[in-house]
Design a binder for these strands. Structure first.
Length: 152
DNA sequence: GCCAACGTTGGC
DNA sequence: GCCAACGTTGGC
């Protein structure tokens, strides 16, 4: 069992949207490293920290889990989609995703609060220059964050 | 294969 | 809106 943090812009898909949708494809990732995490490392049942980014109050807002095996992102084939990739074909798809199922909304655990915690200083998302929308979370970080989510 | 230019991300 | 950091593109 591995753990992950996945960023979503609440103006696109918020934690409330995700809870309402149930298991749904995590479409639109167009970064190879993030894709490789989904394609090569994610397993059904892996834990996910659902993170709101590019918004007034960035932070962890809920929990989710990986809900499928990897498969091609349909939006790469859709010329009407903003995620369309003319270089992708059905024979050789370029972008692979998994389904993500939000399991519960938590309190807002703000980015600033994450930064304050000594056990989280090594978190990928807190490192300078990090922009990846999907990052790995260690078992210890997962535990610490779940403890923090219980407070308040 | 180098690298400048450009585009994107995301906190502030 | 600003800007640092990073990834991608494309000319050479």
């Amino acid at each position: 069992m591995a753990y992950w943090l996945m960023k979503s812009e609440p103006s696109e898909v918020s934690i409330d949207d995700a809870l309402a949708m149930g298991a749904a494809p995590w479409f639109g990732v167009r970064n190879y490293q993030a894709r490789n995490f989904m394609r090569d490392l994610m397993k059904k049942g892996d834990g996910i920290l659902f993170y709101h980014s590019s918004c007034a109050e960035p932070g962890v807002v809920g929990l989710a889990e990986v809900a499928s095996i990897p498969y091609p992102d349909e939006t790469q084939f859709d010329a009407q989609s903003k995620y369309y990739d003319p270089k992708a074909t059905r024979e050789t798809p370029r972008w692979i995703l998994v389904d993500v199922k939000a399991t519960r909304k938590t309190r807002l655990l703000k980015l600033a609060e994450l930064r304050e915690h000594p056990d989280l200083v090594e978190m990928t998302i807190l490192k300078k220059g990090n922009r990846l929308s999907i990052t790995q979370v260690t078992a210890h970080e997962w535990k610490v964050i779940n403890q923090l989510l219980k407070k308040d």
